[in-house]
């Protein structure tokens, strides 16, 4: 991870190492509190993706892709979508597509509002992994093009 040839300077790497865990944690917080405070699956997913993109920028492509490879990210992206559509289809069993069929609980508690937190988790998988993949593809696309020219 500390290969000086790759990535940015020592200052950036040190700061990244200190903050990246906090960014990931903040993303998870935003996702899990999506139904009681501003934010939710999309915003949290973007922040989760940013924590990995942060590593990619500071330490280089190899280090970031060792942590979460393209295939793993692709798997999570599809999983998020499948999870969402499964939850939506489960609602048909109780009457309607996308019906929030489990107990809503007490408002403003963490465990409340039925299926909404689960939908948020599904969206965060989809958005987080999707955004990370888009970033990786943009980076690798530029690199291969440069190789062709040489």
């Amino acid at each position: 991870m500390d290969n000086p040839k790759h990535g940015m300077t020592l200052i950036v790497k040190t700061i990244t190492r200190l903050t990246v865990g906090l960014i990931l944690l903040f993303g998870i917080y935003i996702v899990s509190h999506g139904h009681v405070s501003p934010g939710g699956g999309f915003a949290g997913g973007v922040i989760i993706a940013l924590s990995f993109i942060h590593i990619l920028l500071a330490f280089g492509k190899e280090v970031a892709l060792k942590r979460i490879s393209y295939n793993v990210a692709s798997f999570f992206e599809s999983l998020g979508a499948i999870m969402f559509i499964t939850l939506a289809l489960l609602g048909i069993g109780s009457g309607y597509f996308l019906l929030n069929f489990i107990s809503k609980g007490e408002p403003f508690r963490l465990f409340s509002s039925g299926l909404i937190p689960l939908y948020n988790v599904a969206i965060s998988f989809k958005v987080g992994a999707g955004l990370f993949i888009i970033f990786v593809i943009l980076v690798t696309f530029r690199l291969t093009k440069k190789d062709d020219r040489e």
Binding site: E77, L79, A81, F97
Partner: peptide, 18 residues
């Protein structure tokens, strides 16, 4: 059968990529 027209292709699209 209305939601099936959206649910079937969406679900199979993502199952496919999985």
């Amino acid at each position: 059968p209305l939601p099936l027209f959206i649910a079937i292709p969406l679900a199979s699209a993502f199952l496919n990529s999985l």
